[in-house]
Design a protein around this nucleic acid. Structure first.
Lengths: 197, 197
DNA sequence: TTTTGTGTATACTGATCTGTATACAGACGA
DNA sequence: TCGTCTGTATACAGATCAGTATACACAAAA
């Protein structure tokens, strides 16, 4: 019952997330979500009071999914990094991005895309995207712990800029190895950091 | 007459561009464009056979406007760059991006935003965005001529990734100095290039 | 057994969307 | 002066949008 309830809700969020990512948020009508989910309209509006609320739920779900993907990917790629072991975590991060951008379903970063559809910074949807980016920077800072950089926040921000640049370029242009380019720059930054200590 | 004709057309494109950038493309109805332009609907559809065609016209206009902004900005910022004079052009480029991202009307890169609304690579609108990014890379390559890099195309792509990362971060997050961070990384890349020659 | 919660199905509202149709006005060139 | 071009104004078609209303089904719990 309560189980059923959350399962319906989760199912809606899961389906909506997929559609929003593939077709865009404004490009996906509520009816399309209902059809793909096999759920009645009333049910959706029992769980969410508006489309925007559903959108925010999908973004939170994607946030968790993305973090999980990164962490799992790092466990996979970290051991394969040559060179300095303290850099392996960060470098593996870019391998994950690389693998992701090459995947068949890749359509850019869902948060960058959502920000582009909801442009105003005051928009709650835009705010969720900003929050996600903050969390990614935090994750990068954790990966930087073994590196012991002078200013780990600043370095994490640099890496975040590299990652976003790679993701955007992989999506809009045909530069398929954007993430590896970003990785090579990250390597330079890490080595530069090294020389400062 | 022919003059009047092109002036109506240009006026429509100018108004539409402003609205598309501020409110998003799918967030802007044809009627809003007509109202702001003070033009009859029939006139619009005499010049453009669909909204998509109008969108593409605005993107081409923005493409030119952007290139002009960059070139004018470089003329302004290039003389102010300290250090190696051969790097001044590229570094000035990032100062222009910095000034732009801080401007009041800044709402991200219109092409990244459009790509996010028209996600499929086969979409003509998406294709125009890809073309724009290619032109920016070409511009960066020109700026790299005095640097005489080993592989100017590769370096230009690195710089493009930095620029896009800065633009995206300035828009979605609250990292207001993203462009200056990107600039500092660019400086490292230029110096690294130097040590290879 | 009756109430309550959660669901389905379907029709509807009212707004908005892109694009077309119709009728008319003014300017310019032949 | 007569067409042609370019524009305006307005109404409309037909689709789709988010969200509501209504009526009903089923299951579990009191």
């Amino acid at each position: 019952m309560t189980q059923k309830r959350t399962s319906k809700r989760d199912h809606l969020v899961e389906v909506a997330q997929k559609l929003f990512y593939r077709e865009g948020i404004k490009g996906t009508g509520i009816d399309a979500v209902l059809e793909h989910a096999g759920v009645a309209k009333r049910t959706l509006y029992n769980h969410f009071k508006s489309k925007d609320e559903l959108v925010i739920a999908t973004l939170h779900r994607r946030d968790q999914e993305f973090i999980d993907m990164i962490k799992a990917g790092i466990r996979k790629f970290e051991p394969k990094q040559p060179g300095e072991k303290r850099f392996a975590g960060v470098l593996a991060f870019f391998d994950v991005i690389d693998e992701w951008t090459r995947s068949r379903q890749f359509s850019g970063c869902m948060f960058i895309n959502a920000s582009a559809e909801y442009l105003r910074k005051e928009d709650p949807i835009h705010a969720v995207c900003a929050l996600h980016k903050k969390l990614v920077i935090q994750l990068l800072e954790e990966l930087l712990v073994p590196v012991k950089p002078v200013n780990s926040r600043a370095l994490a921000e640099q890496l975040a800029i590299l990652a976003d640049g790679a993701i955007v370029n992989a999506h809009t242009t045909n530069i398929s190895d954007a993430a590896l380019i970003a990785k090579s720059i990250a390597e330079i930054l890490l080595n530069n950091e090294e020389s400062n200590t």
